[in-house]
């Protein structure tokens, strides 16, 4: 597979490490959320046959975490974003 890195252009997937569902960005606040909420966050995943937003890490490159939108059936990649930008757009700060 080839991932179009927003900064570095097309890169071979071998340079990356896969983590999983991009919903891992939405970590609850440990000072307010309880076990149930963290359980949902950590373990509950959809497993779509189709479009999937997922986290890839450019370990053999610039160390960016990326959010890759990939079709799990065809492997077509329709969007690649810096995870930091996605995190900010989802209201994460410090």
């Amino acid at each position: 597979m080839i991932i179009h890195h927003p900064i570095l252009g097309p890169r071979d997937a071998q340079e990356f490490v896969y983590l999983g569902d991009a919903s891992l960005i939405d970590r609850p606040d440990g000072m307010t959320a309880g076990i149930e909420e963290f359980h949902e966050y950590l373990y509950q995943r959809t497993n779509p046959a189709g479009e999937h937003r997922e986290l890839w890490y450019h370990e053999q490159g610039d160390r960016s975490w990326l959010v890759v939108t990939r079709n799990t059936v065809t492997h077509e990649i329709t969007k690649v974003e810096l995870a930091r930008d996605v995190a900010r757009s989802r209201g994460r700060s410090k």
């Binding site: 960005i25 890490y57 975490w65 995870a83 930091r84 995190a87 994460r92 410090k94």
Partner: peptide, 19 residues
């Protein structure tokens, strides 16, 4: 050594991007 560094980058970029 490698997985901790990867994890810290995840925390820094994905969880607390404004730190």
């Amino acid at each position: 050594a490698v997985t901790v560094f990867r994890h810290l980058e995840f925390c820094r970029q994905c969880l607390w991007p404004e730190m």
